[in-house]
Amino acid sequence: MVRMSAEERRESVIRAAMHEFARGGYHGTSTEAIAKRVGVSQPYLFRLFPSKQALFLATAERCLRETREVFAAAAEGLEGEEATLAMANAYSRLIAEEPDKLQMQLQMYAGVAAAEAAGDHRLGELVRKGWTELWDTVHVPLGGDVTETTSFMAYGMLINTLTAMGFPPGHRVWEGLYPPAPAPVDGSAGAGE
């Protein structure tokens, strides 16, 4: 049996944490559940990440980075309407095929609100930085147009909300979205995910 390196194990912990945090949020997820999903002990998990908060921060950063990479790859070499449609379609595929990414985003936003209310600004700073980078990634292919970027991001948040609430494809709430972004393929990114 081939043993994983510490970096490979760290990657598997982040993937497991994304799955667990996406479902239970920060407070509803135990490090024991994450360790069990990966097949490591809690002490080993804490050798990779010094605290549950450090693991949540790493997972949030990863979620934002991977979402940003999806937008950048989709818009590569495109501008304006072509870039808008390519990014919208790529994002729709991402949240349909990897519902943990959407659920993790929603958990991050809720986590920021709770942490900020308690006076802890680390998660908020990380998420605001990541979201600003996401904004910039979208902004450039849209020609630096603030209105277009705002509209794109607003529609994305609407898609996040409708998907999280479990609205099925074809439901009337999906009508009128522009750019036309298909609803998740089978509604699998619903609220129970």
Results as ranks from 00 to 15, higher is better:
4 M>V: 00
4 M>E: 09
4 M>Q: 01
4 M>D: 11
5 S>E: 01
6 A>T: 07
7 E>A: 04
8 E>S: 00
9 R>Y: 00
10 R>M: 04
10 R>H: 03
11 E>P: 00
13 V>A: 10
14 I>V: 15
14 I>E: 08
14 I>K: 11
15 R>T: 08
16 A>C: 00
17 A>K: 01
18 M>A: 13
18 M>K: 14
18 M>Q: 09
19 H>Q: 02
20 E>F: 02
20 E>T: 00
20 E>G: 00
21 F>P: 04
21 F>R: 10
21 F>W: 12
22 A>K: 06
22 A>F: 06
27 H>E: 14
29 T>C: 10
29 T>H: 15
29 T>K: 09
30 S>T: 03
30 S>I: 09
31 T>I: 15
31 T>S: 12
32 E>S: 15
33 A>Y: 06
34 I>A: 09
34 I>F: 10
34 I>G: 10
35 A>K: 08
35 A>L: 13
37 R>E: 09
37 R>Q: 13
37 R>M: 13
37 R>L: 08
39 G>F: 09
39 G>N: 07
39 G>L: 11
39 G>M: 03
40 V>Q: 08
40 V>K: 11
40 V>C: 15
40 V>I: 15
41 S>H: 12
41 S>Q: 08
42 Q>R: 14
42 Q>E: 14
43 P>Q: 14
43 P>D: 12
44 Y>A: 14
44 Y>C: 12
44 Y>M: 13
44 Y>F: 15
45 L>Y: 07
45 L>E: 06
45 L>K: 06
46 F>T: 00
46 F>D: 00
46 F>V: 04
47 R>H: 13
47 R>K: 14
48 L>I: 10
48 L>V: 10
49 F>T: 07
49 F>R: 04
50 P>C: 10
51 S>R: 04
51 S>P: 03
52 K>F: 01
53 Q>M: 12
53 Q>F: 09
54 A>V: 02
54 A>D: 11
54 A>Q: 12
55 L>M: 13
55 L>D: 03
56 F>K: 05
57 L>N: 03
57 L>C: 06
58 A>I: 08
59 T>W: 07
60 A>H: 07
60 A>N: 05
61 E>C: 06
61 E>I: 03
61 E>M: 05
62 R>V: 01
62 R>W: 05
62 R>D: 10
63 C>A: 14
64 L>I: 04
64 L>H: 02
65 R>L: 13
65 R>M: 13
68 R>S: 02
69 E>Q: 12
69 E>G: 03
70 V>S: 09
70 V>W: 11
71 F>M: 02
72 A>W: 01
75 A>E: 11
76 E>H: 11
76 E>T: 07
76 E>D: 15
77 G>R: 10
77 G>A: 13
78 L>F: 13
78 L>Q: 13
78 L>E: 10
